[in-house]
Amino acid sequence: MEDEIRLFIEYLQIEKNSSSHTVINYQKDIGDFVVFMKQQGLDQFAAVSYVHVRHYLTILHEKKFARNSVARKISSLRSLYRFLLREDLVPQNPFQMTSLPRKTERLPKFFYQEEVEELFKVSDLHTPLGQRNQTLLEFLYGTGIRVSECCDLNVQDIDTTIETILVRGKGRKERYVPIGVYALEALDRYLKDGRQALMKSQTHNKLFVNYKGDPLTTRGVRKVLQKIIKSTSLTMKITPHMMRHTFATHLLNEGADLRAVQELLGHAQLSSTQVYTHVTKDRLQQLYRSYHPRA
Rank of each mutant, 00 (worst) to 15 (best):
T246M: 08
Q285N: 03
I9E: 01
R168Y: 15
V275N: 08
K192R: 03
V70R: 15
T127L: 12
L216S: 05
Q92N: 11
Y11W: 06
P178V: 00
K16T: 01
E10P: 10
L252F: 06
S76V: 04
H61F: 03
H245I: 10
Q40C: 06
I238S: 11
S99C: 01
L107E: 13
R168D: 11
T280I: 04
T161H: 01
G169Q: 05
V275A: 04
S76F: 01
R132Y: 10
G169H: 08
S75H: 09
Y211D: 10
E114T: 15
P108T: 01
T273Y: 10
K63H: 02
A260R: 04
K223E: 04
F110G: 06
L258C: 11
Q269F: 14
Q202T: 06
H267I: 06
M97N: 00
R146N: 04
F139R: 01
Q40M: 04
K230G: 14
M37F: 10
R82L: 12
F139W: 02
Q196G: 08
R172G: 15
T235M: 12
Y56V: 14
P178F: 04
V221K: 00
F83C: 04
S272I: 05
F111W: 07
I74M: 00
V122G: 01
S49H: 08
Y81M: 13
M236G: 03
L187Y: 04
R72F: 02
M242P: 11
N205F: 04
Q13R: 14
E4N: 09
N93E: 02
E174D: 15
K200I: 00
S76T: 02
K227L: 00
K200H: 09
V51H: 10
P240H: 00
A256P: 14
S233Q: 13
P94Y: 11
M1C: 10
L89E: 06
